[in-house]
Design a protein around this nucleic acid. Structure first.
Lengths: 266, 266
DNA sequence: CAAATACCTATGGTCCAACAATTGACCGCA
DNA sequence: TGCGGTCAATTGTTGGACCATAGGTATTTG
């Protein structure tokens, strides 16, 4: 090393060899393989249903050990990209990511970051009016029939059966989301909605009065969806969601505490 | 076996032993462990930063082999719940799920399911007005300064530097999302927004005229955010997003084709 | 001939043991 | 005090072996 390194009196600004260097991350073998496989799959060369090579073939192709190969496969499996079957003619098959998987990941994110309850309400506030509007636009007759059935069961349960009411309410939201005919929107909305429901149950949110209001609100929205009136569906949902948000705020004020998702943790 | 099994003339309705049985799914060891660890982490007993037992301790505690334990850890790592370091005093520590991870999962979902471009637009249409409104409500002075800087660079790039323009536009959206002070909303919006940007780039969407309109729209929204005018921010964003959607529809009509996310796949 | 049955075997699932690579802490020296 | 080397615990990776699973196929059976 030259003495210039530490002498402050160096005549020229010493061009350090360090300049061209950045943080070096040593990749792990299983990371490399899993990224490679993921790229391959997402490139479209392996559509859902396509079979991956067997573990032993991957071992031969990559030069890695079977353990490392398996760790890579587990990573893709955890992301919902793969599904693995044992036995002869088994193996790993490319899978279409499911709503349930995305739901889990959103759950992990929300709980892991302790996303406050208010934030969930805000996201719902953003999504639900559009969901309703799209449902009004794209619903099928079957969707409508299903919504009617759920609304009926909701009416029945509203009077005395709180658990059933909450359950049917969840079904209601899921059904509207399905009717919107937008996979991504449905998945996102269902996740957030489910997260909130969970919180509502814990907070014992379904008073008699609330249940009645929810019921009526659903009826009005159902009406708009039936008439395929997008604007009405959107406006009515906006109103309901805002009312809910205000009510929530009042409750938070009343209980004086800050309600966050840690309440969700059993 | 009794002969009654196949005789149709059995006097009584034969109460079959099969009645109480349902489909049995044999669990894999690594699935069991990973679920157990995930439950433990999400229960809050292990907040981000907490250390998990070492692999060999887990082996001792569970009776599984180290390979199975490692496969479990890889699954959690792929979900963003863990981060593992090698070396003495290394090991697995609980991590707070990052936006990047959720982004990846949403990408996997959208591309894996070939979510059409129009669906992305719809989700954006749902999220962006609320994002803008919340940004107007919750922005800090630093947020505002950052937005101003980006708007300035956007103006500069609009005339001739399309790549820089697209880049700064992405920054703009990210900055607004950050100013909304809602982690989940920010993560969801950034993901969807990024997905759309990618598509826009490929479709060569940034004509001179469009760039000018985008610039003006941003200026108007920036103004509303500066004045902390939630309603204005929401309304203006709604208008812009709708205009964008209509423009998109026109382009789709013109090209005559159906544009879906498979265009994103290289 | 048809149906039930018994193998057959390729594939993932699991375990074990060993060694390599990594990395923070510790210690000794100048 | 600061620097460098050593140490040791922990993950990373490999190889091999055997078990469990499950679809196909041949065989037996009626």
């Amino acid at each position: 090393m030259t003495t210039a390194k530490t002498t402050p009196s160096a005549p020229l600004a010493p061009p350090s060899m360090l300049d061209g260097l950045k943080r070096i991350k040593v990749p792990k073998s299983f990371d490399l393989l899993s990224e490679q496989l993921q790229a391959e799959i997402m490139s479209g060369n392996y559509p859902p249903g396509a079979s991956l090579p067997t573990e032993r073939e991957l071992v031969a192709a990559t030069g890695l050990s079977r353990g490392s190969v398996r760790e890579s496969l587990r990573m893709l499996e955890a992301q919902g990209l793969l599904q693995t079957k044992a036995g002869r003619y088994g193996g790993s098959v490319v899978a279409a990511p499911t709503d349930a998987l995305l739901n889990r990941h959103i759950n992990v994110y929300a709980k892991g970051r302790s996303v406050p309850w208010t934030a969930l309400v805000e996201v719902r506030q953003a999504l639900e009016p559009t969901v309703a509007a799209l449902a009004a636009r794209n619903r099928s007759d079957d969707d409508l029939a299903e919504l009617r059935r759920i609304a009926g069961r909701l009416d029945q349960a509203a009077a005395n059966d709180v658990p059933a009411f909450l359950d049917e309410n969840a079904n209601w939201h899921a059904a509207i989301a399905a009717a919107s005919r937008n996979d991504l929107l449905r998945a996102l909305y269902s996740s957030v909605s489910g997260l909130m429901m969970e919180a509502s149950q814990i907070k014992n949110f379904a008073s008699e009065e609330i249940r009645q209001k929810v019921m009526l609100a659903h009826r009005r929205i159902l009406d708009a969806i039936e008439r395929r009136d997008e604007d009405a569906a959107r406006r009515r949902t906006e109103r309901d969601v805002q009312a809910y948000a205000r009510y929530l705020e009042a409750v938070v004020q009343a209980t004086g505490g800050f309600v966050d998702s840690s309440d969700l943790q059993r």
